[in-house]
Amino acid sequence: MKLSPSVSIEQADSGLEYINVASELCSAKIFLQGAQLTEFTPKDRKPLIWVSSKEDFQEGKSVRGGIPICWPWFGANAKNSDWPTHGVARISLWRADEVTEQGNEIRVSLTLPMAEVDDTYWSHKSTLKVEFVLTNKLEVRLTTTNLSNQVISFTQALHTYFPTPAIEETHIDGLQGAQYIEFGEGPFEQHELVGFVRETDMVYTQAPDTQRIITPDGIIEVGRENSTSCVLWNPWIDKSKRLSNFADDEYQTMLCLEAANVMDDVVQIAPNESHTLATTISWI
């Protein structure tokens, strides 16, 4: 892979390699394990991505924060609950394919070597590619291509962790009118801004394609493409104590708002066709 002047390959203390971006408009880090972005900070702005202070970036373990890629299933596998939660992509080693820099825009593309994916979990002929488009905003595009002679179906999510200085002073706008399931109950209709006063685990369907996270530090706009479902999550007090690589009080400084294809929004791809799940994130 040919690098650009603003891009280098670095190594974390644990030995995991990551792509480091330091351009005129932003800084970013993308780990080869999981193709997981763990930092995105526009120039002269606060970070747009959250990672736990307890994260140690170990081989074979999912990272607590950033944008984990959940694929080819979201949550527990419907057929086998012993399979890896949120699929295999986020704990697999991806290949860095291409970096391009044109003007102030940097594009970083990675692919998942499908030969390395255990066909117990995914036996279909396909490709999986993620592209990060980095300016003063972040765009992530996850593309699955069906190379088989039959329709394939799956669920997925870009499991984005966002920062906030105070979760109880944070609200989500743009989910009004959507339906949601929470803790297996519902569907309910969202009528108002969403606030946080307890553990939150809402799976939305028929969701508008843009939401805004209103925090004391400013407003983050989150857009989605080819997705009518999204997930809103905060572990709150009790669950925080049970999470790995997560400080007991860190629920106060984070939330997840995830571009997804889940529930009725499951992806089905015909032979030789592709599907791209995308999200765009920026301060406004």
Rank of each mutant, 00 (worst) to 15 (best):
V194F: 10
G195A: 11
G195F: 02
F196T: 03
F196R: 04
V197G: 10
R198N: 13
R198A: 12
E199P: 02
E199A: 11
E199Q: 11
E199H: 08
T200F: 03
D201I: 06
M202T: 06
V203P: 00
V203Q: 13
V203G: 01
Y204V: 03
Y204H: 09
T205W: 04
T205E: 10
T205V: 15
Q206I: 06
A207G: 06
A207M: 03
P208M: 04
P208Q: 05
P208T: 03
D209F: 03
D209E: 14
D209A: 13
D209W: 02
T210V: 14
T210H: 12
T210L: 07
Q211H: 04
Q211E: 04
R212M: 08
R212E: 12
R212N: 07
I213N: 00
I214F: 01
I214E: 08
T215R: 04
T215I: 02
T215L: 10
T215F: 02
P216T: 13
P216G: 07
P216C: 10
D217A: 14
D217K: 05
D217N: 15
G218L: 05
G218K: 07
G218M: 06
G218Y: 06
I219E: 15
I220A: 01
I220H: 00
E221T: 15
E221W: 02
V222W: 00
V222L: 10
G223V: 00
G223H: 01
G223K: 06
R224N: 08
E225A: 12
E225G: 10
E225D: 15
E225I: 08
N226D: 13
N226R: 08
S227A: 14
S227Y: 05
S227F: 04
T228L: 12
T228C: 10
